[in-house]
């Protein structure tokens, strides 16, 4: 029968071993050779777009790469799906954008800010998401197949 000492060894040993493997995998998967995000394309505009994304808590309603609020559309391939002009119109609107009645906060962004957001979405749209990009955005997928 298992003793308390053996149970403690199982806990401590298992924790240390799995934690070390976790760190090793983190270092490996974030290495330059494994980069799937085209990080060399992160321009200043992309970074400014990301800051706007965060400071307005867009993730509180929308999802990006499948993460967010589940209340408003997934924006991973939004540029491909909607085009720059539509996105900018939604962001620069003085009235709440409300397709089919569901309201978005009226952010009333400047043209420069809206351009930064588009740059951010374009960078996101190029990331290799291990197949998720084709499932999450069927409209984009159909478009590219046609």
């Amino acid at each position: 029968m298992l003793s308390k000492k053996q149970a403690r060894a199982f806990f401590l040993g298992g924790t240390v071993v799995t934690f070390l493997i976790f760190i090793g995998l983190t270092v490996y998967s974030l290495g330059e050779a494994q980069d799937q995000s085209h990080s060399e394309n992160i321009t200043e505009a992309v970074v400014r777009g990301k800051k706007l994304w965060e400071s307005n808590n867009c993730m509180g309603c929308h999802t990006i790469m499948g993460e967010g609020g589940y209340y408003a559309p997934e924006l991973t391939k939004v540029v491909e799906r909607r085009g720059d002009a539509y996105i900018k119109a939604a962001l620069m609107s003085e009235q709440p954008w409300q397709p089919r009645g569901r309201k978005m906060v009226a952010y009333n962004m400047s043209e420069a800010e809206a351009d930064d957001m588009v740059a951010f979405f374009k960078w996101i749209g190029e990331i290799d998401l291990n197949g998720f990009e084709t499932v999450v955005s069927p409209l984009a997928k159909d478009k590219s197949n046609n």
Partner: peptide
């Protein structure tokens, strides 16, 4: 708690499937 860490630490990987990592 041994089982928790044994599965849970590397189980973090289920959040990494589709966010642009290996």
């Amino acid at each position: 708690v041994g089982l928790t860490f044994l599965s849970g630490i590397l189980g973090t990987g289920h959040h990494y499937y589709y966010i642009g990592v290996n």
